[in-house]
């Protein structure tokens, strides 16, 4: 059965993020997915120290031994990863970004040129599909656009959307079905 990992990266308990997470779980479970939800703010997650230990000391594994290790492993072995996050100045929330940074080891240290830009190749041949959902109380158009561009740079191939937290339940469900369809969950 396909596996999905839902990461709630909201910095504070947010009823709207909770609702979207529960709805995603329900929809995917109905379609035969094994879903695990994790609330990042409840974990012990230290900040990446920029030591590059995950590149040259313990290749592929972060040297900071906290809850990120288990979660990074789960992320790699999932078929779909869903990030639920607030949108802050066009960037993801603190906790979403904190965990994202800890995944530096999923890239290789080497620099290559691709599409005219220097990049790091990915460590794993097969990356999980990625869905990034930003939840915003009032959607500032520039911030939403920036969030989408940033998400697609951080996770190439990711499907991204910003949802207005005041949107009706029906509208949210409709949007989630479209997004899940885009990442390969048959709805």
């Amino acid at each position: 059965m396909p596996k999905a990992l839902i990461l709630d990266g909201a910095d504070h308990k947010d009823p709207r993020v909770d609702y979207i997470g529960s709805l995603l779980e329900e929809i995917m479970a109905e379609r035969g997915w094994v879903v695990e939800s994790v609330t990042l703010r409840r974990l012990e997650l230290d900040s990446c120290r920029g030591c590059f230990g995950c590149w040259v000391k313990t290749p592929g594994e972060c040297v900071i031994k906290d809850d990120a290790i288990d979660l990074l492993r789960k992320q790699v072995t999932s078929d779909l990863v869903v990030d639920l996050t607030e949108v802050l100045f066009g960037s993801p929330s603190y906790h979403t970004k904190l965990f994202m940074e800890r995944g530096l080891g999923s890239a290789l240290p080497f620099m290559i040129k691709r599409k005219g830009m220097t990049q790091h190749p990915l460590r794993y041949e097969c990356e999980p599909m990625h869905l990034m959902i930003g939840v915003a109380r009032e959607i500032v158009q520039g911030d939403a656009e920036l969030f989408r561009r940033l998400a697609s740079r951080c996770c190439p191939g990711a499907v991204t959307e910003v949802i207005d937290s005041d949107a009706s339940d029906d509208k949210v469900k409709e949007l989630l079905l479209v997004l899940l369809n885009e990442v390969g969950v048959k709805v």
Binding site: W55, T58, P59, P109, K113, T118, Y124
Partner: peptide, 30 residues
């Protein structure tokens, strides 16, 4: 292009120093 060459040599040098040259492309979570 020169920066990439130098940077890539540096990563290899650091890996050699740490004895991880052969593990650089390992996939520990696969």
């Amino acid at each position: 292009w020169l920066y990439r060459i130098i940077a890539n040599r540096n990563w290899k040098r650091m890996a050699r120093k740490n004895g991880t040259m052969k593990q650089l492309k390992d996939r520990p979570y696969a």
